[in-house]
């Protein structure tokens, strides 16, 4: 394992686990914050995995996740702003 894969592992364990805990506790908007942060962490993890495996085509996955998590977070925020 090279440094990029180690960094991806550390992020996936120490970064995604707190987001998961936040996402299953407390109120709706606090959970939304955890979801947004989990999207960012997952994007960075995919970037690092692409670099670590040496497959530059895997970066597309990170790019698509960044765009889609942005759209999803905005939709959730709009929904919660009106109805919760």
């Amino acid at each position: 394992m090279n440094a990029w894969l180690w960094a991806a592992t550390v992020l996936a364990v120490a970064g995604l686990a707190p987001c998961l805990v936040v996402t299953v506790r407390s109120g709706a908007l606090e959970r939304l914050v955890g979801l947004e942060l989990a999207g960012v962490v997952a994007t960075v993890v995919l970037l690092l995995l692409a670099q670590g495996f040496g497959r530059s085509s895997y970066v597309d996955l990170a790019l698509v996740l960044a765009l889609l998590s942005f759209a999803g977070s905005l939709v959730f925020a709009r929904f919660l702003q009106r109805w919760v």
Partner: peptide, 10 residues
């Protein structure tokens, strides 16, 4: 930075 912000959010 990312790990610290995750722990802070928690």
């Amino acid at each position: 930075v990312i790990v610290l912000s995750c722990l802070g959010v928690l």
